[in-house]
Structure formats: C-alpha cells, structure tokens
Design a protein around this nucleic acid. Structure first.
Length: 632
RNA sequence: GGUGGCGUAGUUCAGUUGGUUAGAAUGCCGGCCUGUCACGCCGGAGGUCGCGAGUUCGAGUCUCGUCGUCACCGCCA
C-alpha cells in the first residue's frame, strides 16, 4: 500500500476502543498518526492497540527519561493528598506510578475512580525516585503519570492479593483465579512448567517418543476405583478414565516404539489426601530391551537433571535399599533418609524379665531420639498419647532416659536393672543425653508405628529439612500381597510385574516370598514414583494370573488384547511412572500437591470454584439412557 | 466408612465458670495530608455467632443432630 489507505467505503474506529495517545493507532502500511474519530475511506484499515511497552518488572535506572506504557493490576493506592502513589502489578513485578501536580487533567480525573485490582494502562515518563525502595527490583525508578486508562474495573476482592494474604484456604480456592495472581502461588506453577520442560528436554535427548494415549478407555476392576463415562452411542456401556496408561504403553513396546514417555493426566476415584487428588499428573515411561538397572540409571539421570535445571542442586548417586531393609529399619516402604533414628529389633534382648507386656509380644522395637533425655513427663505423656491414637493404634510407649552421669531412668525400672538398660543403649546406639523409645506388639504393626513415631520426633526436632534432598531407590519389592478380605493374593505393583528369576520356583511353594523386579523412587519420605520390569513371556503371565485368582476366561476378558499382542513378538521391556505433582510440591518445599495444581479439588473431591460435580439435566440423562437413584 | 480440629464483621481472629448493647486488626466508605512504599491522622458503616433441635430464667459459650472445611485411618494394583 503506502500513503493513506483509501477505498470507497467509510470506516470509523469503533467507540469501544479508547485512544489516549494518537501514536497508538497503527495503520497497516501507513506511518501517519491519526487523532480520535478519524474517518477512514477503507474497509481494510487495521489498527493495533499497544497495551504496553514494558512489563511492570523490567524498568531500571537505565530507562530514565523513557516514555513508557505499562498495563497491569492496581496493587495499592497511597493517597497523600496533593500526591498519589499507585503500585502497578503484573506477573513480572511491581512498578510505582506517581500522580502529582504535573500530571495531566485526565489523570486526576480518573484517579478517584481507581480501586484495588483495577486493570489499568498507564503512560508516563521514567524518573528517578527521591526515596528509593531497596526491596523491589524497580525500586530506583517510578513513572510520572501523563495518561491513565481503566481497561477493566474490579469489585473489591475478598482477600488481599499479596504474599502474606489475609485469605484462608477456603476462600482462596473459591476465588482461585485471584489466588493465582499472588506471586507465591504463581511461582509454584512456574516451577511446575520449568520442571515439565526439563522432563521433555531430557527424555527427548534420550530418543524417547512422546505419545498420547486414550483418556477414554476400558474399566478394569483391579486396583483403584475407576471414574466412568457413559457412552451415548453404545447404550448402557461405559468408558473408564485411565488410572495409568499402563497397558497402552506396553502395547507401544510391542509396536516397537522402543522408548516412550508422556506427561499424562491419570484418574482414581478414591478418597483424597494432601498428596492425593482424583486427577493427577504422571511422567509415564516405558523402555524396550532393558533390565531393571537400565531403567534406574535412566531415571536417576532424569531426576538429577531436574534437580540441576530447576533448583540448581547437585544430588549424589541414589542408594539402593531392599524393601525388607526399609521395613525393618525405617518401618516404611518410603523411608525418609535425611536423618538416622533407625528402628532396632530388641525382641530377644528384653524378653525374660517377667515384664508381661514384653514377654507376650511378638516383636519389640526401639528407636533412639538423640538429645531427648531431657524430655519432661508432659512431653513423654504427649508422645504416648500420640502413639495411642487410633491412627497409630499402639498400646503404649516405654522410655529409657540415658542420663548425663551414665545412669538410666526408665518407665520399666521395676523389671530391668541398669545393666539391662545399658545393653539396650548399646543396641540402639544411645549415648548420654539420648532417649530410647520402645514399642511392643505384632511385628508388622509395630514397625509401622515406630516408623511413624520416628517421623513425628524428627519433625519435632526439626530434622525434616525441606531444603535438603535425599533420594533413594527402594528395590526388591514382594511380588504379591496377601489380602485378608478377599482371601487371595494381590499384585503389589500390578499383574504384569515380573518376578525375580531366582524366585520363580517359589511361585509354586511360597508365593508370598517371591520378590519382584519392581522399584520405587523415594525422596525425603515421599513416594515419587515406581515401576517394574514387565512379564513378556505368556507362560509366566498365565502363571501370574493364576496366582492372582483369575480364571483363564477372566484374564482374557480383561487383558486379552494385551495378551494377544504379546503373541506377536513382545520385546523385553520395563517402565516407570513418576507422580509429577508430588515431585513439584517436593521441589517447592510444600506439603500439599494442591499448591502446585492450578485448579485443584478439595478434600471431598469438589471444585469449590465452579461447584462441581453437579447433577445433569433430565435431557442429558435420557440421552444416555441413565436413571439416577433417588438418594434423598 | 471411621477419628479428630475448625466454623463469630468482606477477611483473619479474640470472646472468661452460660449473664448488660458480641470485640480487635485489616479491608471498605467519607474527610485531612507533597515522598509514600504494611504511608499517617480523624470519622463512619458493616454480624441470622454455619444450620436445626434441646437443656436453661438466660446460649456465641453446654448437649444432640446436620452441613461445610481441613488433617489423618480405612481405601489408593
């Protein structure tokens, strides 16, 4: 074009566009600037509003004298009478705007209308502050306002949009879009994005193919409850949302993809926790022609890469701990190894002193709390009550204080002379000033209870440092788990997990003792992920299904398509999945994965912002041929 | 399904053995103020004490139920 755009039609710039500076009208192919209400003889006039020349976080002393345009939210207005300061906020920071005697008439006209969280556009000149603010990066400068436009007004927000907000969890979730304006919350989401990026960089560089698998799939009764979706076209039939893309990724191995990954939403219709949401995100992977060690190396590498890229932390090689050791020493399959306080089996040492509680117990275990000999009666009572709560369910707690003078004071002095207590101290590694805590009962239960007590004391002693990261692999999980309710074995990981080669004979004799080629990544007592080497031999798979109590027909109905696929040449393969939300919350030093999910569900699985789930209309039900039982 | 905590102003909370008109801070509205940045000062409005029963002369307070919310146990291959 060139020159004024001219055709026969007449077009006026719409009134809804507010022009406060004529140079913000840009006509394609035309450098001339036009005042408001210019009539153009053209149909193809295009214009562009320049909302900002800079963000609210980038102006510095070097920009002195620049004419700038900023857009953002009004964080705070400080009206000093003849002078007003406005903090303008966007994602990138806060810049101070100043209105004083030199500001134009339109500014002073609009100023009284402004309130918190108004979206405004501000035009002015960068100048040096006479009083600088060292607390913010833009604190050396301010914008002397010349023009102001209200782009969008705001009603008074229900809580303050700042790091130390006055809003509680409830109100913040209801207005999550306002909560997400806060630096502290948005930074979690930025970390999440950064970590997802790191995952893709690393796995792409290792020749993994990112592949999407279906969200609408088939329900399987194994494992967690499925979320189901009724099918309109297939009356009376339902899809299920995937608990994980397990079978699809194994099929991709049969397809010869060799290396697959996906950052994928998974769904489980179970009760929620701080670290459990009904929909959550996994980093899901599978590899062909690999052994357990190959998978561990690859994903140890990924984890280290993520630590380096997102937190700039170098973590050392991850130790490997057998499941049995984790249970015996930490009372948990996800041990927190940031501190010691290991569990010691003192069953044989303490029996035979006519203390009925111990003599009748199957297992007696002890932990040593360093430097806690000074605990008062009140503190010990409160610990005892803590382990007696139904959630732990211990009968009681025996203590031994290792006094500074080398003597011992215990709650069982009547039964155990000093020499016995000294022997306990020897086993548990307790020195002067330490406190030994002992629990007795059924072995499995006590290990768990001692494990919980260990974590609780560590918390009280401040040993669970969120800035310190101690990853490890827990390996050699049992293949099967006996379920009392259904009186049958369950797969501890899933039915496709391969047993250790040397343990295969045990499948016929002592199935409970068979170890699996299964592994978990644990960091700071959080189960970050797990996986296994899969069965690719149909004979072994059939044996596994039999152990799990499947009939041939049952197994065919549920997993037939996978078993069929395996008949066409399945490569040896293994895989792993990381809980991405947990990993992000761990990196961010947060206890709840809700804080790293943009729009999370509450404790009851509800979205309090849009009030879902909700009933659907009769028309929708009719179309799906569904009848909802009257539950009132 | 179970155990426990919480529910009082827009928000965060206090509220004594049950006793006068339920308070504070902050936010909001109005006024004053030229260097604030958690601005300051003066004034004002704002409450079905989650809801429903019960005990009592009298309930924010005690009891029972219910709803909401959070944490945990069960559950989550």
């Amino acid at each position: 074009m060139g020159g004024d755009p001219i055709t026969t039609s007449i077009l006026r710039i719409p009134n809804s566009v507010k022009f406060y500076r004529d140079n913000l009208i840009i006509i394609k192919g035309c450098k001339k600037k036009f005042p408001k209400y210019t009539y153009f003889r053209s149909l193809i006039v295009t214009y562009k509003i320049m909302y900002r020349t800079h963000t609210c976080g980038e102006l510095r002393i070097e920009n002195l004298g620049n004419e700038v345009t900023l857009s953002g939210w009004v964080q705070r207005i400080r009206d000093l009478g003849a002078m007003t300061f406005i903090d303008l906020r966007d994602r990138y920071g806060i810049t101070q705007l100043v209105v004083d005697g030199d500001s134009g008439g339109t500014v002073t006209e609009i100023l009284p209308e402004l309130g918190r969280e108004y979206v405004i556009q501000a035009v002015g000149k960068v100048r040096e502050r006479s009083n600088k603010n060292k607390n913010i990066p833009t604190g050396d400068i301010e914008i002397a306002l010349k023009e102001i436009v209200i782009l969008s007004p705001s009603i008074v927000p229900p809580f303050t949009i700042q790091d130390d907000t006055d809003g509680g969890d409830d109100i913040r979730m209801k207005f999550r879009y306002l909560d997400l304006r806060r630096d502290a919350v948005r930074k979690n989401m930025e970390l999440r994005a950064k970590m997802a990026h790191a995952v893709r960089c690393y796995l792409n560089s290792k020749d993994f193919i990112e592949t999407e698998t279906p969200v609408l799939m088939k329900s399987t009764p194994e494992g967690a409850r499925d979320f189901v979706v009724p099918s309109r076209m297939n009356e009376g039939q339902f899809y299920a949302l995937p608990q994980s893309p397990q079978q699809f990724k194994q099929l991709l191995m049969v397809a010869g993809f060799d290396r697959y990954y996906q950052i994928v939403k998974c769904f489980r219709d179970e009760d929620l926790r701080a670290d459990r949401q009904p929909e959550f995100t996994q980093i899901d992977c599978e590899m062909s022609f690999v052994e357990q060690e190959d998978v561990l190396e690859m994903f140890e590498g990924l984890t280290k890469y993520m630590f380096k890229e997102s937190l700039d932390i170098e973590v050392g090689d991850f130790p490997r701990m057998p499941y049995s050791e984790a249970m015996e020493k930490y009372g948990s399959d996800k041990p927190d190894t940031r501190f010691g306080m290991l569990i010691n089996d003192i069953t044989e040492t303490v029996k035979g002193n006519n203390f009925v509680v111990f003599d009748s117990a199957g297992y007696i275990g002890a932990i040593c709390a360093k430097g806690c000999a000074g605990y008062t009666r009140k503190q010990l009572d409160s610990l005892t009550n803590w382990v007696k709560r139904p959630q732990i369910g211990a009968k009681g707690l025996v203590y031994v204080k290792c006094n500074e003078d080398g003597s011992f004071k215990s709650s069982v002095d009547k039964f155990y002379p000093q020499d016995d207590l000294k022997r306990w101290a020897g086993i548990t590694g307790a020195a002067a000033g330490d406190l030994i805590l002992v629990m007795s009962g059924k072995k499995g239960h006590m290990l768990t209870a001692l494990g919980e007590l260990r974590l609780e004391i560590a918390k009280q002693l401040g040993l669970r440092d969120k800035k310190s990261f101690k990853p490890l692999w827990v390996v050699d999980f049992p293949l099967l788990e006996w379920d009392e309710d259904s009186q049958r074995f369950h797969a501890m990981h899933h039915p496709f997990t391969s047993p250790k080669k040397e343990d295969i004979p045990l499948m016929d004799t002592e199935p409970g003792k068979v170890r699996a080629n299964a592994y978990d990544l644990v960091i700071n007592g959080v189960e970050i992920g797990g996986g296994s080497v899969r069965i690719f031999d149909s004979g072994l798979q059939a044996k596994m299904f039999k152990l799990l109590g499947f009939t041939k027909e049952g197994a065919d109905a549920q997993f037939g398509f996978l078993m069929n696929a395996f008949k066409y040449g399945a490569p040896p393969h293994a895989g792993i999945a990381f809980g991405f939300d947990r990993l992000v919350s761990l990196f961010a030093g947060l206890d709840s994965i809700r804080d790293v999910i943009a729009f999370p569900k509450n404790n009851s699985g509800r979205d309090v912002m849009n009030d879902s789930p909700a009933p659907i209309s009769q028309e929708q039900l009719d179309e799906l041929n569904l009848i909802v039982k009257d539950i009132s």
